[in-house]
Amino acid sequence: MPSHVGTADHILSSPPARADGVALFLDMDGVLAPLAPTPDAVRPVARRTAVLKALETRLEGRVAIVSGRTIAEIDRIADGAMTSASGVHGLERRRRDGSIERGAADKGVARALEAFNAFAAERPGMIVEDKGVAAGLHYRQAPDQAAAAEVLARRLSDETGLTLQPGHMVLELKTPGATKGTALTAFMREPPFQGAAPVMLGDDVTDEDGFRAAAALGGYGVLVGPGRPTAARYRLEDVDAVLTWLEAVVEA
Rank of each mutant, 00 (worst) to 15 (best):
H138S: 02
A216Q: 12
S157H: 00
K131H: 12
I127V: 15
V45M: 12
R18Q: 08
L52I: 05
A183S: 08
A178Q: 06
K180S: 05
E172S: 13
V51M: 00
A248T: 08
P198N: 00
M28R: 07
A64C: 10
A232C: 14
I74W: 01
E73Q: 10
A115T: 04
R212C: 14
S14P: 10
M126E: 01
F25W: 12
A196H: 12
T244C: 01
G225Y: 02
M82G: 00
R43Q: 12
L173E: 09
D97R: 01
L171P: 00
T160A: 07
A41W: 04
F119C: 04
A36M: 09
R111S: 10
W245I: 02
E122R: 14
E92Q: 15
F119G: 11
L184Y: 02
E92R: 07
L12R: 14
S86M: 03
R76E: 13
P37Y: 03
A146Y: 00
A149Y: 11
E73S: 15
T185E: 15
R62V: 03
A215D: 08
E190F: 09
A216Y: 10
R123L: 11
P37C: 05
G87P: 02
A112V: 09
L26W: 08
F119Y: 06
G80N: 06
A105M: 12
R69W: 02
G177Y: 00
F119N: 09
D238M: 07
D27H: 12
K53A: 14
G108F: 09
V250Y: 02
A46T: 14
A149R: 07
V31C: 15
R18E: 10
L246Q: 04
D27Q: 13
S86H: 01
G227S: 09
A148H: 10
M188L: 15
M28K: 03
E159H: 08
L35K: 01
D238H: 12
A178Y: 00
E237L: 00
G181M: 14
E237Q: 11
L24K: 03
L164I: 10
T70H: 08
M188W: 15
V224G: 02
R93P: 05
A105P: 11
E56V: 08
P192N: 04
V31K: 13
S86E: 08
E129G: 03
R62I: 03
H138Y: 12
G161Y: 05
G225L: 04
G30W: 02
E73M: 07
T38W: 06
R228K: 14
H168T: 14
A213F: 12
A104S: 10
